[in-house]
């Protein structure tokens, strides 16, 4: 949703409301009634719907997630100069959109995945401002291979990888989430926050516009 469109609607509403504020009798005249109905019901409702859509879209952005203090080290983990770090590898090599890095891997690719991610986000808001932030952040549920296979599934590099074909059942087990990509000992270097906390800024990757901004 274009911010200019929302700003335009808001500006029109404010200008009309200010007119009604000083000339409330206008709302009882024939043309004024329509004007008042538009300025006091239709346009504010439209602005709220457009604003909600804009904020929901913004909540997918990496900048949004990293704006909370507890997420700072997770943001740094995207810049680790080591290809063994799965998130850093994906982020730096543009395997995921850098603008939506967190959301791409941490949304459930199910029918209501986006919606449940937003509900979790509201819980996070509560904890951030009113609750107690835990020392160690944990996922609500074990990481599902489905989130990896959303991109990698059916890819030649995935299907043809010799480790993935080690046995006749390996590939099928991964696809059924019986064999975890992350915890089965293959791609197990993820954010590793304790390690990242020990790293100095000089050790982090300096390339890319996003990395420079951080």
């Amino acid at each position: 949703m274009s911010m200019f469109l929302i700003s335009g609607v808001i500006a029109i509403v404010i200008a009309t409301l200010l007119l009604l504020e000083f000339k409330p009798a206008l709302a009882q005249e024939q043309g004024g009634k329509i004007l008042a109905f538009a300025a006091m019901f239709l346009l504010p409702t439209a602005a709220m719907v457009m604003g909600s859509a804009e904020h929901l879209e913004r909540s997918k952005q990496t900048e949004f997630c990293l704006s909370c203090h507890p997420m700072h080290d997770y943001g740094r983990s995207l810049l680790v100069d080591d290809k063994e770090f799965v998130p850093a590898n994906h982020f730096q090599n543009k395997r995921i959109s850098r603008d939506q890095a967190c959301f791409t891997c941490h949304t459930d690719y199910t029918m209501y995945g986006d919606f449940s991610a937003k509900i979790r986000g509201v819980k996070h808001l509560y904890v951030q401002y009113l609750g107690t932030i835990p020392d160690t952040l944990k996922l609500y549920t074990p990481y599902n291979n489905r989130e990896c296979l959303q991109c990698h599934g059916d890819a030649r590099t995935f299907e043809g990888n010799r480790h993935h074909k080690e046995t006749d059942t390996t590939l099928a087990a991964m696809k059924d989430n019986r064999l975890s990509c992350l915890t089965s000992g293959c791609h197990d270097v993820i954010h590793n926050i304790r390690e990242v906390r020990q790293m100095k800024d000089d050790e982090l990757w300096k390339g890319g516009v996003y990395a420079k901004a951080h």
């Binding site: 911010m3 929302i6 700003s7 604003g51 804009e54 904020h55 913004r58 909540s59 952005q61 900048e63 949004f64 704006s67 909370c68 986000g121 996070h124 808001l125 951030q128 401002y129």
Partner: peptide, 9 residues
Amino acid sequence: LMWIGPSAF
């Protein structure tokens, strides 16, 4: 709409 973050929401 001026900034991005949970506080904006």
